[in-house]
Design a protein around this nucleic acid. Structure first.
Lengths: 223, 223
DNA sequence: CATTAAAATGAGTTATCACTCACTTATTTT
DNA sequence: AAAATAAGTGAGTGATAACTCATTTTAATG
C-alpha cells in the first residue's frame, strides 16, 4: 500500500545539487497547500509567508517570482509523473502476462488510484494550470501521452493476441479507461459528497473489466 | 440538432423583469468569453470594457462588483441547468419506454453532448468556480444532483423491470455514465489534440451500452 | 422642442499585491 | 574568534486593477 509521493521525488531532486533549508521547505509546502486550497491567483505571497511562518522577503530568496514558485512545485510532477505513470509502472506491472482481463484491470487501477490518492494536492495544482494555460497543457500532455500510449499499447496488444480484450483501436480503449479513471479522480479531488471510496473502487474495476471484455456489442455504431 | 443555449435562457430571464441595453449585453458576452478564455482572475474589468467596446465605468453600472458580474452569468446556468439536464429533458425523452438499451443510451447522450457543445464557454466558467469554491460547488450540486438522480432513476428502474439493464445500484450506474460523459466533455472543453468528435461520440455510446448491458461480469468485486 | 430621466463616460481614487533592498541574524570557513 | 558568506527580515515601492463620481451623451416623455 506504500505509494510514491511526488513530494519525495522533489526532495530527491534537490538533494543532488543543492540543499534546501527548513524555511524554504516550509514555503514550498505552504504554497502547495494554498494553491490546492484556493488556487494560484487567489493565493498571495503574504499568505504563503504567513502560512510558512516566514517573512515575505524569504519567499523571494530562492524563487524569483511567484510563478517560479509554482513551477518549482510543478517540475517534479511533470518530470516524474511520466516514469510513475508509464515507465516505472511498466517495469513492475506491464512486463508480466496477465492471465485474465480482470487481473490486468485490477493491477493497473489499484496502482493508479493509490498514486492519485497520495498526490491529490499536486494533481489539483497541475489541473488548474492545464485548464487555462493552453501551452503548458500541451507541453505536459506531449510529455505524458505518447509514452503512455506506447507502454499501455504493448500490453493491450498482448491481451488482444490472447483474445482477452475487445478488438478496438488502442486509443479508444485507453480513452474509455482514462474517462473512468478521470471521473473517479474528479470525485476524489473535488471531495464530492456521498463518495464511498472503497465501494467505488471495486465498482470501477468491474465497469472497466466489462468495457474491455470482448463480446457481441463491439462494433462501433454511428456513421 | 437545434439545442437550447444557456445564453437564450439568460435573455429570457432578463426580459421578464428588466430591460437590458445593448452595451450591457455586450459586457455580459465579453465577460463570458474572457472568463472562459483566461479565467476569472486573469480577466480585468478594463479587459472586459475593451472587448465590449464600452467605458470601464459602464461595466459597473448594473453590476456593482466583478464577482456580481460573474454571478449574473452563473445564475441562469445554475437555474436552468437543472431543467435542461433533468426535468425538461425528462419530459421529452424520459417519458417514453425504450425498446432497447442502445436506444436509451443514444437518446440520452446525443442530447447531453449536443447541449454541452452548445454551452462550452458556460461550462468552463462554472467548472472554474466549482473547482475552488467549496460552498458554491456544493450549492450547485445540491441543485442538480437530487433531481437528476430522481429523474434518471425512474427510467433506470423501468429498464431494470424489463431486464434491459444491469442490476446495479442506480447511483453507481449514473456514476459510470457520468464518468464517460465527463471524460468526453473534458476533451471537448480542453480541446485536447487528436480528438475526432464524430468517431468519439459513436464510441461513447457503444461503451456505455456495453457497461449497462446485463451479463456475467455483473457482481461487484473487491472486499 | 424642451425637459427629465437614464445610460454612459473616463479621469481619478484606493487598495492590494508582487517584488525589492538595505539591513540583521545565523552559519560556515579559516 | 574573526572574517566571510549565506539566509532571513520587513518596511517600502511601483504597478496594476477594482471601483467611484462628477460630467456628458443619449433616450424618453409631455
Amino acid at each position: 500500500m506504500e505509494r510514491p509521493r511526488i513530494r519525495d521525488y522533489f526532495q530527491q531532486d534537490l538533494s543532488q545539487n543543492e540543499t534546501i533549508t527548513p524555511k524554504q521547505r516550509a514555503i514550498l509546502q505552504a504554497s502547495l497547500d494554498l494553491f490546492a486550497e484556493k488556487g494560484f491567483d487567489q493565493t498571495s505571497t503574504s499568505d504563503i509567508a504567513q502560512r510558512a511562518g516566514v517573512a515575505e522577503g524569504t519567499v523571494y530568496r530562492r524563487y524569483k517570482t511567484k510563478a517560479a514558485l509554482r513551477d518549482a512545485i510543478l517540475a517534479p510532477i511533470t518530470a516524474h509523473i511520466v516514469p510513475i505513470l508509464a515507465s516505472d509502472f511498466s517495469e513492475d506491472k506491464l512486463r508480466q502476462r496477465y492471465p485474465s482481463l480482470q487481473a490486468f484491470v485490477t493491477a493497473i487501477f489499484t496502482d493508479r488510484v493509490a498514486f492519485a490518492k497520495a498526490n491529490v494536492k499536486e494533481l489539483k495544482v497541475i489541473f488548474e494550470v492545464a485548464a487555462f494555460d493552453t501551452e503548458r497543457r500541451e507541453q505536459i500532455l506531449s510529455q505524458i501521452a505518447p509514452k503512455m500510449v506506447k507502454q499501455m499499447g504493448s500490453v493491450i496488444n498482448q491481451l488482444k493476441a490472447d483474445h482477452l480484450i475487445v478488438d478496438w483501436p488502442n486509443d479508444l480503449i485507453l480513452q474509455s479507461l482514462l474517462s473512468q479513471l478521470f471521473g473517479y479522480l474528479a470525485r476524489l479531488i473535488l471531495e464530492l459528497p456521498g463518495t464511498e471510496i472503497e465501494r467505488e473502487q471495486a465498482y470501477l474495476i468491474t465497469v472497466m473489466t466489462k468495457i474491455l471484455t470482448p463480446g457481441e456489442h463491439d462494433q462501433i455504431t454511428g456513421q
